[in-house]
Amino acid sequence: MTTTTTPTTPHEPALTPDSRPRTRSVAAPSKRMSAFFANASLIIIGFCFLLPLSWLVFASFDTAATYQTRVPAELSFDNFSAVLTPELTFLPLWNSLIISVSTAVITVVIALLAAYPLSRYQARFNKPFMYTVLFGTCLPITAIMVPVYALFVALNLLDSIPGTIAFLAASSLPVAIYMAKNFMDSVPISLEEAAWVDGASAMRALRTIVIPLMRPGIAVISIYVFFAAWGNFFVPFVLLLSPSKQPAAISIYSFFGQYGTIAYGQLAAFSLIYAVPVIALYVLVSRGIGGSFALAGAVKG
């Protein structure tokens, strides 16, 4: 084991804050030291990450907010009541909801349908298809927005919510198919075989056996797609033009453009209202199905 000490890697690990003293002993003091260092550096990093966030929360409750972070003199909900108007908040939030829920539902249904033959039948076509799908997951969506705009003009789909949903669904399909296939592979096939013997069709087996068994996986995919659609700014920004159809991301952006330099508090309040659904959903999910790990695992493939 000592042969590994040959300096094959010349650079010292600048990345490890774990600079424990030279002594090689693993005795308690050094361990406590390293735990102390770890705690201290985590707290410092955490503080840096918290600072910008705290502005958002403080400013939203502060009627005299600026871009500086300070605890509001008095807790006020005026900012919230000022932005909670139909045309400013409710309609855009409703649009966001429609767009992201439809995108998630369509994507999940189509991805499950597609995953079934890919997971259950051996075909020569499967492997190249899965590689194409994997390639599609890497596709930089912002890079194709200019051609997508031209396509939407040609198809007369510009400024149409269904068109936008269709594009969002198509762009999240590669990831969804990839995840759905992986989840479906882990559902044992023996139960379906029994159903087939009893004369159930493939689609019936999928509906009554496979889907109930992969419910956690379906939840992960739906939430993943919902998150991406809810937070997406660029796609609706390019594809939806009339304010009555635009989701909250765009209406926040327009609000910022008009009043961003005056109504800091209202901007913060609006942003918070828009962010709360995803935060709540994330908390729910991470309690329920080990959120980050499930997502990370799915991404890790």
Binding site: A249, I252, Y253, L267, Y274, A275, V278, I279, Y282
Partner: peptide, 9 residues
């Protein structure tokens, strides 16, 4: 988790 536009603001 924050939506990208909020993070940007």
């Amino acid at each position: 988790i924050l939506p990208e536009i909020v993070a940007a603001f």
